[in-house]
């Protein structure tokens, strides 16, 4: 009798756990559905807060899937015409001033992009959350009058840059309002705040983000989307080194 109850109890708990994790994974899937797309064209501005002054850089990027991406910088004048091509895990940059294509590899990828709180790797790691992590719902909270799922993501692959993440997901938009990236040891490394959710082509998308390397002093880096279009025709020749020089 006793044993049976225990067995049923365990089973029930297991089912609940599965259901719960499913919900967590479902939430994660919904975030992925919102955030990633077959292809997109984004015009954005990045504001980097230095110790002395802040700079804003605008760029337009064309992304197909998670492997291919092409970015052209539009302003300031110093940056204008600089292009960046990412194919899988390789990255090239083109500098119009002296017509050079430079491959950024190895340790340079870990450097910050234009002095921001983001590294090239951070920018390049476009894999969907569901590919890399398993999630559990840690709690459901009420923050600023909105209901929020707190998700704990743990890497299921070896080569994730961040072993775990914590996401505060808005229950209505299925977008994170805040994300924290943790080291294997549980040490908080980076924090992202997302805001200004807008509906674009039938999906919700955050138009503003702030990236912050919490180990460093400073205000972090602001990223703002000026315009975003999904499912555009992006010609394939854009993703070639030849296109960099055009």
């Amino acid at each position: 009798m006793c044993k049976r109850f225990i067995l049923i109890g365990v089973l029930l708990m297991a089912i609940i756990a599965v259901l719960k994790s499913q919900t967590a994974n479902e939430i994660m899937q919904k975030i992925d559905d919102n955030m990633s797309s077959e292809n997109r064209v984004v015009e954005s501005s990045m504001t980097i807060h230095g110790r002395r002054n802040s700079r804003t850089i605008t760029s337009v990027s064309y992304t197909v899937g998670t492997e291919k991406s092409f970015t052209e910088y539009l302003s300031p004048p110093r940056e204008k015409g600089t292009k960046m091509l990412k194919l899988e895990d390789r990255l090239w940059t083109y500098y119009p001033a002296n017509d050079r294509i430079v491959q950024i590899s190895g340790h340079m990828l870990r450097q910050s992009v234009m002095g921001s709180d983001l590294s090239y790797e951070d920018m390049m790691d476009d894999r969907q959350l569901t590919e890399v992590y398993v999630a559990v719902v840690e709690s459901k909270e009420e923050i600023d009058g909105r209901s929020i799922f707190v998700l704990k993501l743990t890497a299921k692959v070896d080569d994730a840059a961040y072993h775990s993440r914590k996401l505060w997901v808005d229950a209505e938009y299925y977008l994170p309002t805040k994300e924290e990236l943790y080291a294997k040891s549980g040490q908080l490394l980076k924090r992202t705040q997302l805001s200004d959710f807008q509906k674009v082509d039938g999906r919700w998308y955050p138009m503003k983000m702030n990236f912050k390397d919490v180990l460093k002093q400073g205000e972090g880096t602001d990223w703002e989307i000026i315009s975003i279009r999904f499912n555009e025709e992006i010609p394939d020749y854009l993703f070639s080194k030849a296109a960099l020089k055009q």
């Binding site: 790797e121 890497a155 070896d158 080569d159 994730a160 840059a161 961040y162 072993h163 990236l181 080291a183 294997k184 040891s185 040490q187 490394l189 180990l215």
Partner: peptide, 14 residues
């Protein structure tokens, strides 16, 4: 605080 990356490139800190 020490921050390093393991053989797979995953960040770790302690």
């Amino acid at each position: 605080l020490l921050r390093w990356r393991d053989k797979n490139g995953t960040f770790d800190a302690a």
